[in-house]
């Protein structure tokens, strides 16, 4: 056996023993690369995920809704930062990651390329999109890479209010006037399928999943997570008296789980390839925000330099 194979074997055993891999540990290059890709994409998703909701902060229907939405969006910025930090422990460079996002080279979750035309979308996003994200993130609390797992624990603690505030919005609308109920149903119709797509392609079309599962980066398959999400969400929709837009959705007594209709994977791949309704808009907004923040970064630099110079001068005088 070569030394490399030996190390691989040891690494696998270490991971199989449910031990956490830490930044200074030896790890296979492919493990490191997979994690950098996954964690940075996850970080980008948190950042771009602020945009569809930020659209409604100034138009939230009450002060209560406004402070909640503001706090949620601020949390997402924090989540992005925790994740970029986790990627940095693998020697990824923050600036490279940000540049890749701004240039369009990096991917982020395609769910954020859908528009938010009504207030009900904010309810549906919290309920379904954060709900789906939580399912994935709860699993990732047990991922084998220590810094990623720790970031996830922190994120999961903050996420649960996101879903609750979304569901509360849906409850208010669903119990409201006929127009409000219609808004809620319309938002569910538009967000249901894209939310299911958030878990990624079916297991048979997800070739990299097996290795990720073996390294315990992923702990559950895409289909497993998707089905858990559906089983959890259907009763929540029933409580709202809203109809899930899937005529093939049916309880399967044998599997003790819901069977669901075919997902339109063409739509999924189209949005990934940049042909979603808002891909261009999101990238433009992100770039604009980055450019408009340039003076803040410059001012911070100037201040830091001035302080440093003053400190040096005082040292010289003493």
């Amino acid at each position: 056996m070569t030394k490399e194979m030996d190390m691989m074997e040891q690494f696998q055993q270490y991971v199989d023993g449910e031990n956490k891999v830490e930044p200074k540990h030896w790890m296979p290059e492919a493990y490191r690369k997979t994690l950098i890709r996954q964690i940075s994409q996850h970080a980008h998703s948190e950042v771009v995920g602020m945009l569809p909701e930020a659209n409604w902060i100034t138009r939230a229907p009450s002060l209560r809704r406004k402070v909640a939405l503001l706090a949620k969006v601020q949390d997402e910025a924090g989540h992005g930062l925790y994740l970029y930090s986790a990627a940095e422990t693998l020697a990824a460079d923050r600036k490279d990651m940000i540049d890749d996002l701004l240039s369009g080279k990096a991917k982020y979750s395609s769910i954020f390329n859908y528009p938010t035309p009504t207030w009900a979308d904010i309810g549906a996003i919290g309920w379904l999109v954060d709900g789906a994200a939580i399912a994935n993130q709860v699993m990732l609390c047990r991922t084998s890479y220590g810094p990623y797992a720790r970031a996830m624990v922190k994120i999961c603690k903050e996420e649960s209010f996101h879903q609750r505030q979304g569901y509360e919005i849906m409850m208010t609308l669903a119990k409201g006037s006929p127009e409000q109920k219609k808004m809620a149903q319309d938002a569910l119709n538009r967000w249901w399928w894209p939310s299911l797509m958030m878990f990624g392609p079916t297991d048979e079309h997800s070739p990299n999943s097996a290795q990720s599962m073996k390294w315990k980066i992923k702990r559950k398959s895409n289909d497993e997570l998707r089905e858990e999400f559906i089983d959890k969400t259907v009763p929540q929709a029933e409580y709202l008296n809203l109809t899930i837009p899937d005529k093939d959705l049916k309880w399967n007594e044998d599997r003790q789980s819901y069977d669901h209709g075919e997902i339109d994977w063409d739509e999924f791949y189209n949005v990934i390839k940049g042909r979603g309704k808002c891909n261009k808009q999101r990238m433009a907004a992100r770039n604009k925000a980055h450019e408009e923040g340039a003076w803040v970064r410059e001012a911070a630099n100037a201040y830091a330099e001035k302080q440093e110079a003053r400190k040096q001068k005082q040292k010289g005088a003493a």
Binding site: A71, Q74, D75, G78, L81, Y82, S85, E88, R94, A151, K154, E158, A300, N301, Y303, A304, Q307, E308
Partner: peptide
């Protein structure tokens, strides 16, 4: 230890840490 962040100097690092790590 709760995590890390980027900042040009220690003062900014404290301010950012307050926003990112002590919101609750």
């Amino acid at each position: 230890h709760v995590g890390s962040l980027h900042a040009p100097d220690a003062d900014m690092a404290i301010k950012n840490a307050r926003d990112v790590y002590t919101r609750r």
